[in-house]
Design a binder for these strands. Structure first.
Length: 942
RNA sequence: GCCCGGGUGGCGGAACUGGUAUACGCGCAACACUUAAAAUGUUGUCUGCAUUUAGCGGAUGUGGGUUCGAUUCCCACCCCGGGCACCA
């Protein structure tokens, strides 16, 4: 030993030794507890790996190595996700068959991975394009077909004109193809769809119990998009037709101004409107727009009234016009809505454009505070108050003044009954004496207030209505002002807000200023809603729904999964079309339906898969009647294999079943799953759906596939952009491994920053971890045989820290604590053999090669990776002497070193006696002394 | 617009449950070794004022609040990242 640290020599040597020994192969039977640690398997592209790819694999490697040393039976497998467009496009470009390209890419990937020294059990390797594997991908599809979860549909779907295939909703990004960025078109075509929506509620509910990053859970929640509301029937006048709308706000039903149908509903129905032609023209225009255009910036509302057709509001019998407009989507809810302009932004915009009435039926609720807080033991007076904001020709506004301090607008209550124009005139006369006013517009935004009024010693539950009026003349009559009940005054616009005391009036004033008709989309108290007045929105939702015999329902944003692709490189969908028997599943015994060899696997452009051209493959017998049948020529999407591959690792060679029940029961579920956050709303949704289905048919014993999930943060290029061939900023791990060694690469990637966060690569900074390993290497020469450890406390703290940090994926801090330990050992001019061994074990998961070499060098016969993970002794973590900080009134002034178990009083006495402290305390009274055990002392002085 | 997550030195970042902010690493500077450079080692490195030393003040996006004490808790706002979005 003592030669230089030569990583090239060491790393190759140990990789070969480990491989030969089979020490990373996992047993399916063991008395040990299991730990299933999984990476999202890669898609082997032609480019090979860049340094960003292995980051997640390094993490699972560290985690699985520690778990193995802690006595777990570990499953840590790897495989290949190789069906799909990228492989096919690569093959077309390079003029090789996709299967050959895949084999080549896999070999390259595997070699690159091997150089980094992972502990994968390669005997369990899977490949989604292997017929022995995709047999089971097809089998799952058949089971779904059998259970009615796979169905044929002719609805228009997203079509990518560049990739020449239909896409699922999940494959879009801002209305563009996620792969190539082309704007997708709506295209009606025959397709296979999986009924994933049936699992929407379960997928949402079970999310809570998962130990996943909040951001991923949040994404899934948004994606599934649950909303609760009511389905309400509107009768079409003079017809037996019924329009069912979906609304989350049935409490606003009395404010409905019109109803809207989505274009699809109008197109597929007979509505008998008088302006048939105009409507057809509108539908035609709508069809030409892509989703992007339809929702583009500005997106002014468009629509056409169905002339001569009207519907009846079931709550009050009011007759409402009916429109068709593309702001209502056919694919959500019932495709029809009731529009309440006063309480919905979109309806408001539409109503303004088409001159439809705006009627307020929900008032925001203001609750009194402090003095004015509601008092439960006092009487509550319910009133409706009509208020008038009166303006004179000088642009001033009239306020009433009570007791010289209470300013408010004209207003008077009615115990029972309704507010109307007459009341406005009456109240104005009574309170101000003015007799000639002009009311401008309708009443606007009402406000509901619950507060306590001290003068009356009563609670008031008030609904305030506000009118705007202009003074026409100065004519006055004898009124309350003259009786001395209050005074009045005219004030300028900018004075009003400061003068008004009442929050209700202030709110109304602000509404008035910002243009009287402000929409209010929040919840509050009902007004102008007949017997439902004063109910809270929450209560009214249920009551009004019941009243109009509506149904309370749950809707989801999630759409069923468009599952067929018109491309070659995918699993054939195992169905046969027979003229006599219809769609018939391929019998299980005939699986897999092999993907045939083909001359040209380029897309046909006709919307048919290239498989359709292979007549000898397409033409087959119907398994039911024996007559002529044709095979389904669509293939499955790339996501099919990855939706269940993790189960196959448990039992990769099984020919009789997807996975053996006992093995599944032993290994399931995945304890730790690591991969990129970009899979939040695709792979992780699909896999959870598949898993729940497999649970329902008894293939798996646990409802969720992945209990714990950790996201890898991207490694960006040094220029801060994504690493890509396009930018020419790719760093190849092979180069780093060859120059600095795999151990350094591993250490560096884990040390860069928090694991889940994106960080920019810096080849400059990689020397840090390399220097650290050099020092670890040199430390071997300073190892002594003594039993007297000088670094006991640091050592035990490090054992705790490294173990805890690996558990929580805090690798950067784990490494930092190992660096601190090494610094300490160097300061001690050497380490005992025992301490050094412990240090090596702690480092082994991170840097498996160098630690193995040193471990053997100092006399160990068995691999360090089979050694026992050290345990720490909490009592030994404590140092004998500790530093106590001394603060005076929260400011740090001094510190003292005391014995760890020193009495509190002694510490106090010592602290007060310190010259620096005496200086700060002098002439002041010590109010109290706060002691934080083992940390600090705060002397509070006055 | 709604919902999440986050803002700390020149840089990546650390900080227990409210308790000495800036650990660890990079970079930089000085010194040692060297003919020299690299490598290595030692020391220093938030900032302002003061400066022989000691010292005093300020700083965790901004402004307030709670507290003996706030990066940590509360309120308002600004900025960055992500998800959803004409979803009724």
């Amino acid at each position: 030993m003592t030669e230089k640290y030569d990583h090239k020599d060491i790393e190759k040597k140990w990789q070969d030794t480990w491989e030969k020994s089979g020490m990373y192969h996992s047993n399916n039977t063991s008395s040990k507890p299991k730990k299933y640690v999984l990476d999202m398997f890669p898609y082997p592209s032609g480019e090979g790996l860049h340094v960003g790819h292995p980051k997640g694999y390094i993490a699972t490697d560290i985690y699985s190595r520690m778990k193995r040393m802690q006595g777990f039976n570990v499953l840590h497998p790897m495989g290949w996700d190789a069906f799909g467009l990228p492989a096919e496009q690569y093959a077309i470009k390079n003029k090789v068959h996709p299967s050959i390209a895949v084999a080549k890419n896999v070999a390259h990937y595997k070699e690159q991975l091997s150089d980094i020294g992972f502990d994968y059990d390669w005997s369990r390797e899977v490949n989604t394009t292997d017929p022995a594997f995709y047999k089971w991908t097809q089998w799952i599809f058949l089971k779904m077909f059998e259970k009615g979860l796979a169905y044929e549909s002719y609805e228009p779907i997203n079509w990518c004109p560049s990739c020449q295939t239909g896409l699922a909703n999940e494959d879009l990004e801002d209305g563009k193809c996620e792969r190539c960025g082309t704007v997708v078109e709506k295209k009606p075509m025959r397709q296979w769809v999986l009924r994933i929506t049936k699992y929407a509620d379960r997928m949402l509910e079970d999310l809570d119990a998962l130990d996943w990053p909040v951001s991923i859970k949040e994404s899934q929640k948004n994606w599934i998009g649950r909303s609760e509301g009511a389905e309400i029937d509107f009768k079409v006048k003079n017809s037996d037709k019924i329009i069912t709308v979906f609304t989350t706000r049935p409490d606003t039903l009395f404010g409905a101004a019109y109803c809207v149908l989505a274009p699809e509903l109008v197109e597929n129905g007979e509505w008998g409107m008088e302006n048939e032609e105009e409507v057809r023209e509108y539908l035609k225009q709508v069809k030409q727009k892509t989703d992007i255009e339809r929702t583009a910036e500005g997106r002014e509302k468009t629509g056409v009234k169905l002339e001569g057709v009207s519907v009846i509001n079931p709550a009050n019998g009011e007759e409402l016009p009916l429109y068709v407009a593309d702001y209502v989507l056919g694919g959500y809810g019932t495709g029809a809505v009731m529009a309440v302009p006063a309480h919905d932004e979109r309806d408001f915009e539409f109503a303004k454009k088409f001159g439809l009435p705006i009627k307020y039926v929900v008032a925001p609720r203001i609750i009194g505070e402090g003095e004015r807080a509601y008092r439960p033991n006092f009487e509550t007076l319910k009133r409706k108050v009509t208020n008038v904001i009166l303006e004179n020709d000088k642009g001033q506004f009239l306020l009433l003044i009570e007791n010289k301090k209470d300013f408010h607008f004209i207003g008077g209550g009615i115990e029972d009954g309704d507010t109307d124009i007459e009341t406005v005139h009456k109240e104005t006369k009574e309170e101000s004496g003015y007799t000639e006013i002009e009311i401008i517009g309708d009443k606007f935004n009402p406000v509901s207030t619950l507060s306590f009024r001290t003068p009356k010693q009563k609670n008031q539950d008030i609904i305030g209505f506000f009118y705007y009026a202009k003074l026409k003349s100065d004519n006055k009559i004898f009124c309350e002002v003259d009786e001395g009940k209050h005074e009045i005054g005219w004030y300028d616009k900018d004075q009003i807000a400061d003068l008004i005391n009442s929050r209700t009036h202030k709110t109304a004033w602000l509404n008035f200023l910002s243009g009287r008709n402000q929409i209010f989309t929040g919840e509050g108290d009902l007004v102008d809603s007949a017997q439902f007045d004063r109910l809270s929105s929450e209560e009214a939702k249920k009551k009004i729904t019941d009243f109009v015999k509506g149904r309370w329902v749950t809707k989801y944003r999630l759409k069923d999964w468009v599952f067929s692709r018109q491309r070659y490189w995918g699993e054939p969908i195992p169905l046969i079309h027979c003229e006599k028997c219809g769609v018939v599943p391929v019998p299980e015994k005939d699986l897999p339906v092999m993907l045939p060899e083909v001359e040209s696997y380029e897309p046909t452009g006709t919307g048919e898969s290239p498989l359709a051209d292979i007549s000898e493959w397409v033409n087959t017998k119907c398994p039911v009647c024996g007559g002529a049948g044709k095979r389904e020529t669509n293939t499955m999407p790339q996501w099919a294999g990855s939706s269940w591959y993790y189960l196959r690792y448990m039992d990769p060679k099984n020919t009789a079943s997807l996975v053996d029940k006992d093995k599944e029961k032993y290994w399931s579920p995945v304890d730790m799953y690591v991969g990129g956050a970009e899979h939040a709303t695709r792979h992780l949704i699909y896999a959870r759906f598949y898993h729940k289905f497999l649970y329902d048919i008894g293939v798996v014993n646990y409802e969720e596939p992945f209990i714990r999930l950790q996201n890898v943060g991207l490694i960006m290029a040094e220029d801060g952009r994504k690493m890509s061939k396009r930018w020419g900023n790719v760093v190849n791990p092979d180069d780093i491994v060859s120059e600095y060694g795999a151990d350094t690469l591993r250490l560096y990637e884990m040390f860069m920053g928090p694991f889940g966060q994106a960080v920019a690569w810096s080849t400059k900074s990689i020397v840090g971890p390399r220097r650290f390993l050099e020092r670890v290497w040199k430390m071997r020469d300073k190892v002594n045989e003594s039993h007297d450890s000088k670094a006991e406390a640091v050592l035990h703290r490090t054992i705790k820290k490294v173990g805890d940090d690996i558990e929580t994926f805090g690798f950067n801090t784990a490494i930092s604590s190992l660096m601190i330990l090494l610094n300490e050992l160097e300061k001690q001019e050497g380490a005992t053999k025992k301490d050094y061994e412990t240090f090596l074990i702690l480092l082994a998961p991170f840097a498996p090669h160098i630690t193995e070499e040193l471990w053997r060098e100092i006399g160990n016969k068995e691999s360090i990776h089979l050694a026992l993970w050290p345990t720490y002794d909490a009592s030994k973590c404590v140092v004998k002497e500790i530093t106590i900080a001394i603060q005076v009134s929260g400011k740090l002034r001094d510190s003292i070193i005391v014995k760890a178990d020193e009495e509190e009083d002694t510490i106090k006495a010592l602290a007060i006696a310190r010259p620096d402290i005496v200086k700060w305390v002098a002439g002041k009274e010590i109010k109290k002394i706060i002691v934080v055990k083992g940390r600090l002392l705060n002397i509070v002085v006055l």
